[in-house]
Nucleic acid binder design. Structure first.
Lengths: 207, 207
DNA sequence: TATGGATGGAACGATAACGTATCGACGATA
DNA sequence: TATCGTCGATACGTTATCGTTCCATCCATA
């Protein structure tokens, strides 16, 4: 069940309860992301967030003690939406499936705007850096699964440079979509997958 | 009244001249970037920019008619600082040299904070998208030179997928430095260069 | 030396968002 | 049914920035 999300949630309620609505909390998160995408993190106005969620400002300040805490809670909530990739039987097909899923994520207009903002903020404040790291590690876990499967199949040497490999998988697509603002076709993704596989197979730890 | 908005503005001055100081203009640019890096684009205050440059707000509004125009001029000024890569004699060495130069750029604390902000803003406003495209094309021209040299040397087939290749060159390093906030060692750059070369050589248009 | 435009600085009224406080209404619990 | 915390809403004083205007000063030219 949904627990009391209150900041001071551990207190006992003498009687006659009125629990903070979880629906309202998620509505606040959603409104926060929309404001973020539209205006940029630094320009998020909590008044507009509340208005967009159809709520009063008090509903925000009852839940979070600061803007940072609000942002952290919202991003954490966002990071939970990650599914593990299915096994397609070959490294290149796995990579292509990964790219297709990543493209779907990066096509989302909110995400495409929020992600670079998150990275910029990560360079500014330690709190946002923690959030950014958390999101990055969730992504990284997916790539890790693909690598391990390929090693078990014998498509990759166990001595593959894992750090480099984990970065190679999403980098080119992120560059195209977020930096350049281009959404590749499926054929382009296939070519990208082939190139990535070649890079992975070449990146053994040789020294 | 026809106002001279240009920085250098070598117009006919009737007499007794007092030219807008180029020193002050560049000081305003510098202050703008520092504010941008520190607070984020959306939160740049022209009052703080002027104060940081040791100037009055009027000095800004005398030069630029709007915040957008100011930002555009500053970014354009920034984009001019790009040098063409020297010919090292081999593709892999060229790529490594390219990565080392890119690392030097992305190591700059201002640039590492401003770039993702610029990409986020590019998804929000057409004006910033134009600026972002301009910066991207300058970078792209460098990579193009490297590719053409490799083709002439015979290290790459002329049928190489140029779009993909141009994206592969900077993508992984950008991902590591801007998205993850990590600065790779020279050895890691060398491994990355080798992997990129393998990807390039595999990315022929085969269809 | 005289001229005239640029300069830093200050003030202006107008917005906008801040964080807090208070209100009656609502509804879940006891 | 009585209770009591959350709800939307509104108002408050404060702070920050906006874009504009004015002014005394500076300084490169003519």
């Amino acid at each position: 069940m949904e627990r009391n999300r209150s900041v001071e949630g551990a207190r006992k309620k003498p009687s006659g309860a009125a629990v903070k609505s979880a629906k309202l909390t998620t509505a606040l998160y959603r409104a926060f992301f929309e404001e973020w995408a539209e205006r940029g993190f630094a320009a998020v106005s909590l008044e507009r967030v509340a208005a967009k969620a159809g709520a009063g400002k008090a509903a925000i300040y009852r839940r979070f003690s600061s803007r940072q805490e609000f942002a952290a809670a919202a991003v954490t909530e966002l990071g939970l939406t990650i599914a593990m990739p299915e096994d397609t039987g070959s490294l290149e097909a796995d990579v292509l499936a990964f790219l297709i899923r990543l493209r779907a994520v990066l096509r989302h207009p909110l995400i495409r705007r929020i992600l670079p903002d998150l990275h910029a903020e990560a360079a500014r404040s330690p709190e946002m850096r923690i959030l950014n790291t958390r999101v990055a590690e969730a992504r990284r876990a997916q790539a890790q699964v693909i690598l391990e499967r390929a090693i078990k199949r014998g498509e990759l040497d166990a001595a593959v440079d894992r750090d480099l490999a984990l970065d190679l998988l999403p980098a080119a697509l992120y560059w195209r979509m977020v930096v350049l603002g281009i959404s590749p076709t499926r054929d382009q993704l296939a070519a990208e997958a082939a190139a990535i596989v070649a890079a992975l197979q070449a990146s053994m730890r040789t020294s």
